[in-house]
């Protein structure tokens, strides 16, 4: 079961890579980058998961030794938290690029854009 989860996450990464490499449409490429973003974030969170583990937030009255034995890994979560927001900044950047491409060439198709550039 555990290996199934990892393999499915890698399959998600593969779909993203395929979209970025093989698709011609700018919006499709943005979608592919988002899929890669999801897959990597998800993989990092899953690596830190502990069977039956709870959120790494100390409940009131919970002894710290028990907390340290049951909580999931907080380190990947801290890294992924910033990574998600960086993903939003990068999405805004890519959307701005797509808008500019559309304004100049009136199409999202990379082949068409290359042809129009001459």
């Amino acid at each position: 079961m555990g290996i199934t989860i990892y393999v499915l996450t890698f399959a998600l990464l593969l779909i993203g890579i395929y979209a970025v490499v093989a698709k011609k449409n700018v919006v499709k490429i943005i979608v592919g980058v988002l899929v890669i973003d999801y897959a990597v974030n998800l993989f990092l969170v899953l690596v830190g998961y502990r069977t039956g583990g709870g959120a790494p937030i100390l409940a009131e009255g919970q002894p710290v030794t028990e907390f340290a034995r049951t909580a999931v890994d907080p380190l990947p979560q801290a890294m992924v938290l910033t990574s998600i927001v960086i993903g939003l900044g990068i999405t805004a950047l890519m959307v701005a690029m797509a808008i500019r491409l559309w304004e100049n060439y009136r199409t999202f198709d990379m082949n068409e854009i290359r042809r129009l550039r001459g």
């Binding site: 927001v85 939003l88 900044g89 805004a92 959307v95 701005a96 808008i99 304004e103």
Partner: peptide, 21 residues
């Protein structure tokens, strides 16, 4: 920091993107 940055970029996208379109 994050809030103001994202609000600013949304504003820029709405104003520059849509109005010029």
């Amino acid at each position: 920091k994050v809030g103001a940055g994202l609000v600013g970029v949304l504003l820029a996208l709405a104003v520059y993107g849509t109005a010029r379109y």
